[in-house]
Structures are given as structure tokens and as C-alpha cells.
């Protein structure tokens, strides 16, 4: 197996773990919140999802640097490094890392943090797959911000619906 294939597999695994665990963490959090509290067992289940998200992030970062090393050694230059898609992806990953820190140290509201995390993982997935994206950096980032706001309200809607249901 060549390095590119190895790195690509790692990048896909990291993204799959991150996107999958984020999605299920959100679904289970909503389900567990039905009775208004998270019991120790439910807390443990959520904790596993958060650990998988962290693992996915670490794999994603290392495999991402693997790509960078290959690009650098093959002199791919500004066309690849400074492409709108790549710069947007780097921005999303930096936001994702910052949000993860901010959530852990309770520097931002958990609901805002979970909307940022949720959208960031999907954005990283989309930017990774959509290799011939014609969108410019500002358009991608603006869409990203709009999606975060929309996701915040969608998640809030589901949280309110679940908590207003009779127990």
C-alpha cells in the first residue's frame, strides 16, 4: 500500500468516526433528555461518544498532516495549499478544535457548542468529498456560519419538543 492510500484511509476513518459519533451523541442526548435528567448510565454512554469524537479528531488531524507532507514533497504549491476549499477546511478544523476546548472549559454555551461541532464535522466531510467545489472561500465560510445558526435553532426546536412531551 502506498502512503497516499494509507493516509486517505486514515482520513476517511477519522471523518467517519467524528461525523458518526457527533450525530449519535446528539440523537442520544435528545433521547436521554426526555425525562429532564441524564442518569449515570446515560452519562457513560454519552462519554463514550465524546471519546470517539476526540479519537476521530486526532486521526483526522494526523492524516491531514500526512496529506500536507505529501503535497509539500511533491511541490504542489499555492494551487493546492491556498485553494478556497483547502483554506475553508483548515478554518473549519481550527473552529472545531477551538469549540472543543471552549466546550470542555465551559467558555461557551453547550447548545451553541454542540451546533458548531455538529456543523463543523459535516462541513469537513463535505469539503473533503466535494473536491471540485466551485465555491469561493467567503461563500463557503458564510454558508458555514448560516448553517450553524440554522442547526442551533433546529436542535433547539427538537429539545423543546422533547421536553414538552408528557413523561
Amino acid at each position: 500500500m502506498d502512503w497516499l492510500t494509507f493516509i486517505r484511509i486514515g482520513h476517511v476513518i477519522g471523518t467517519v468516526l467524528g461525523v458518526g459519533a457527533t450525530t449519535f451523541a446528539e440523537i442520544f442526548y435528545l433521547k436521554f433528555s426526555k425525562d429532564g435528567e441524564i442518569n449515570p448510565l446515560e452519562h457513560d454512554v454519552l462519554k463514550i461518544f465524546y471519546q470517539i469524537i476526540r479519537l476521530g479528531l486526532v486521526i483526522l488531524v494526523f492524516s491531514g498532516f500526512g496529506y500536507l507532507i505529501l503535497w509539500r514533497l511533491n511541490f504542489l504549491g499555492p494551487q493546492v495549499f491556498f485553494s478556497d476549499r483547502f483554506m475553508a477546511k483548515i478554518t473549519v478544523i481550527v473552529v472545531l478544535l477551538t469549540a472543543a476546548f471552549a466546550i470542555n472549559f465551559r467558555l461557551i454555551n453547550l447548545k451553541v457548542g454542540s451546533a458548531i461541532t455538529f456543523v463543523s464535522w459535516y462541513m469537513a466531510l463535505i469539503l473533503g468529498v466535494w473536491r471540485k467545489s466551485p465555491l469561493s472561500y467567503p461563500v463557503i465560510i458564510l454558508s458555514y456560519l448560516v448553517l450553524i445558526v440554522i442547526t442551533y435553532f433546529v436542535l433547539e426546536f427538537f429539545r423543546n419538543r422533547i421536553s414538552s412531551k408528557p413523561k
Partner: peptide, 17 residues
């Protein structure tokens, strides 16, 4: 993180041309 981003920019500026 700051110097990593700087490193990415530096690597991205190197071409064969």
C-alpha cells in the same frame, strides 16, 4: 496552532517553477 498555520503557508509557497 499559530506556527502550524504559518508552517502550512510556508509549505504552500514552495513550487518547482
Amino acid at each position: 496552532i499559530v506556527i502550524t498555520l504559518a508552517g502550512i503557508s510556508i509549505s504552500g509557497s514552495v513550487t518547482k517553477k
